[in-house]
């Protein structure tokens, strides 16, 4: 499968890349790892006439701990996140999600910024970023701006990025020490996208749930938060009944899609079961 012809530049800096995007308008696409874009181009579902390859821009691949947050450069690969000791220790939810994306070869090329900008409702990282209250830093012709994850994922394959904006960094608030998370993904075959996945992060204080965030993959046109389940569990003492009651509400308010993998009812069931398993795994209560 041969993509439609296009012109290609590989700028060395973000301002140059933004200028290229401004110049070529809606005909241009940003190429990062290319593991979402290139397959779409080969199927000619996407036919940009101009590609701006940001892969040669220095200093866009890093994982750093700052005072208030952990910063990931937009070109940090899934592999780098999967194998990062810092991410494993501080953001196990993100590390587990990274390890379950695609396969080793895909993880060597795919980037977190590309996955976020692609805004696939069945993608793993968008849900994690939503559950972790991430901020996404974009650079455009009018300078830099920060977009909260809850505002970033707008619709299926649609993010809040303007056409000439490029993601530069993703900032994840540092979870408190008594906080942990997990990512549970259900699919029928290795390599597959999630049918449903759950990203859960729980902060405990004196045996009670101080804060809980539950993100859902595959339950709608964009990543969602299980707001009813979160409300049901916040402030509760950790106990099997409380986890079960909250989990049963995981799919409340969602309208999951129907496809070959399953019905909306099947997805609602998966969301509840995966949420319960995630909460049990994090709190050790069963």
């Amino acid at each position: 499968m041969i993509p439609a012809a296009f012109d290609y530049v590989a700028p060395r800096s973000l301002p140059e890349a933004v200028a290229d995007l401004v110049k070529h308008g809606s005909e241009a696409k940003v190429l990062a790892g290319g593991h979402s874009l290139i397959p779409l181009m080969k199927l000619r579902l996407s036919t940009p006439s101009f590609l701006v390859d940001i892969g040669r821009i220095q200093d866009l691949s890093y994982i750093r701990e700052a005072d208030s947050h952990i910063a990931l450069g937009a070109l940090t690969t899934h592999h780098e996140i999967e194998f990062s000791e810092l991410v494993k220790a501080r953001l196990p939810l993100l590390q587990q999600a990274a390890a379950q994306i695609g396969d080793a070869q895909v993880r060597n090329r795919g980037t977190i910024g590309g996955a976020a900008a692609h805004a696939d409702p069945n993608g793993d990282f968008p849900t994690c970023l939503l559950a972790l209250d991430a901020e996404l830093i974009a650079v455009g012709p009018r300078g830099e701006r920060s977009i909260k994850a809850q505002d970033f994922f707008v619709d299926t394959f649609t993010s809040a990025l303007e056409p000439a904006e490029i993601l530069r960094e993703i900032r994840i608030p540092r979870p408190p020490s008594a906080s942990s998370g997990t990512y549970l993904k259900f699919s029928r075959r290795s390599q597959d996208w999630a049918i449903v996945a759950v990203a859960a992060q729980v902060s405990l204080r004196e045996g009670r749930v101080e804060r809980v965030a539950i993100g859902l993959t595959g339950m709608g046109p964009r990543p969602l938060r299980a707001a009813a389940a979160e409300r049901a569990l916040t402030g509760k003492a950790v106990a099997p009944d409380a986890l079960r009651e909250a989990s049963a509400q995981a799919a409340d308010g969602t309208q999951p899609p129907e496809d070959l993998n399953g019905s909306p009812e099947y997805r609602r069931h998966l969301a509840a079961v995966l949420t319960r398993r995630a909460l049990e795994a994090i709190t050790g209560s069963k």
Binding site: Y8, A10, L31, G34, H35, I38, D53, R109
Partner: peptide, 14 residues
């Protein structure tokens, strides 16, 4: 790094 060469453009490997 292992990669799938069907999902990389030759120009990216320059």
């Amino acid at each position: 790094h292992s990669v799938k060469a069907c999902t990389v453009f030759a120009v990216q490997a320059n």
